[in-house]
Write a protein that binds this DNA or RNA. Structure first.
Length: 435
DNA sequence: TCTGGGGTCCTAGGACCC
DNA sequence: TCTGGGGTCCTAGGACCC
């Protein structure tokens, strides 16, 4: 019995590592890892690095010896580069279908309804070759009747050398075999907690899960769990999301380059995050109804008392003006700050987002609102043209995150010891390739 | 010394109203 | 003095994703 192949999942292999390799081809076949912000932990690994036993999320400081011994190449994360490469991959994929969902920076769901089942493998190979040729990024393709099964097929396409990076689940027998080979914790939608619970009940594979009673799953894993269950059985519960829905919250937060004790340093960091966050808010044409600020000390500390606090206020009316948001964020921070602690992270969340057009009337009844709105437009235009640092508030300080030299950087700024060039988005980066 | 950042959805429980 | 029940809204917390 054959099933209709409705979805393909195209996933970039070790995406961040692959981005770095595009511009450093000599790193092919060499173990490579990419670190999270602040060079904290491993967030991408090449196959060679995986073979050395380096796991996702491992702290870098615990791996230093291994990295040195095995000559692992290390990169700080370079989101400017990865974002740009991601756009190139998406634009290549959109040549293959107009109906495509950007699921994450390195994954897209593609609609297959225009293909006959027997054409899917050939189509998948063509996708792989074209993306590789046009962007330099290797991808894998999984195809099936539901999104959950397409994810599962994609995982196996990566694992099975003989699949050549493309796997389609055509028949019930093929699907059953794939389900039997997938550990339950590797199913999309089954996280650590559910996996643990299921394993205790001797449900160890995706196949076992697909045989569970609906009632038990609904009761213990909510309706999202039930959707996963039905999709494993081939019954589609999720469609492509062709338009990205507006975000309901927007957050900007960073760990500090080193622990901070002074309020003024944290104010510089938080004001910079607030400006970033407000910029994201305006890009979505939204206004925020509330502001939350959070502040924390090191949660792993054993000798110090862990302090983790947050404060929220509702705004008199929704706004996206930095002039409204900044003083409120600063006030919340001062309210939480306790001297004598070593803080490691601060962040802001803008919540209760509403379309800016819906508060427009209020905005015009308030003269300040109209002025602010024009000012913010101007700021956005100038910053887009000349960069984030072109126009800043005094409270943000005068240091520039792009500066590499230690003494030119503020203490709150991220560590990025192993940063590659912004090869694709700046002239300097471009010159670095030629050299 | 050194452990990321940014989201979503669901549910339970409390507050409040009629 | 007795003291219901149903509905809605909000929030906190937990689970998940990449």
């Amino acid at each position: 019995m054959t099933t209709t192949l409705r979805f393909a999942l195209v996933d970039c292999n070790s995406f961040y590592v692959s981005c770095e390799r595009v511009f450093r081809p000599e790193l092919e076949d060499v173990p490579v890892v990419v670190l999270s912000n602040n060079d904290g932990c491993v967030i991408a690994r090449s196959d060679e690095a995986k073979a050395l036993g380096i796991k996702m999320g491992m702290p870098y400081f615990q791996l230093k010896d291994l990295i040195k011994r095995e000559r692992v190449e290390v990169f700080s994360s370079n989101y400017e580069l990865y974002g740009d490469m991601s756009r190139r991959v998406v634009s290549t994929l959109s040549q293959f279908t107009p109906n495509l969902e950007i699921y994450s920076i390195d994954e897209c769901f593609l609609d297959l309804s225009h293909l006959k089942p027997e054409e899917v493998e050939e189509w998948g190979r063509s996708v792989r070759e074209t993306v590789k040729k046009w962007t330099g990024i290797p991808v894998s393709v999984g195809a099936a009747g539901t999104k959950t099964l397409a994810k599962l097929a994609n995982r196996l396409a990566k694992k099975r050398a003989e699949a050549g990076g493309v796997l389609a689940l055509h028949t019930a027998a093929e699907t059953e075999e794939a389900l039997r080979k997938t550990p339950v914790g590797d199913v999309w939608g089954i996280g650590r907690q559910h996996a643990k619970r299921l394993q205790q009940l001797n449900v160890t594979t995706a196949w076992d899960l697909s045989r569970m009673p609906d009632g038990w799953v609904k009761k213990n894993m909510a309706v999202t769990g039930l959707r996963t269950l039905l999709e494993l059985r081939g019954q589609p519960c999720q469609d492509l999301e062709l338009e990205t829905p507006d975000k309901k919250n927007i957050c900007t937060s960073r760990s500090f380059g080193r622990p901070l004790t002074e309020l003024c340093d944290i104010e510089e960091a938080l004001s910079t995050h607030t400006v970033r966050c407000a910029t994201k808010l305006r890009r979505q044409n939204s206004c925020a109804s509330g502001v939350t600020v959070f502040l924390m000390t090191n949660r792993f500390a054993v000798t110090e008392h862990v302090y983790c606090n947050s404060r929220t206020i509702q705004l008199p009316q929704p706004t996206n003006s930095e002039l409204e948001l900044l003083p409120r964020a600063m006030h919340l921070l001062k309210d939480m700050f306790r001297p004598g602690k070593r803080y490691v992270k601060v962040g802001i969340i803008l919540n209760g987002l509403v379309p800016a057009s819906e508060v427009q009337l209020d905005l015009f009844s308030n003269q300040n609102g109209e002025k602010h709105s024009k000012l913010m437009d101007t700021l956005d235009t100038l910053r887009q043209r000349f960069g984030h640092h072109a126009l800043k508030y005094a409270v943000q300080g005068n240091k520039n995150e792009k500066d590499v030299e230690e003494e030119k950087r503020a203490p709150w700024m991220l560590q990025k010891k192993f940063l590659s060039s912004p090869y694709t988005t700046s002239l300097k980066g471009l010159l670095r390739i030629k050299a």
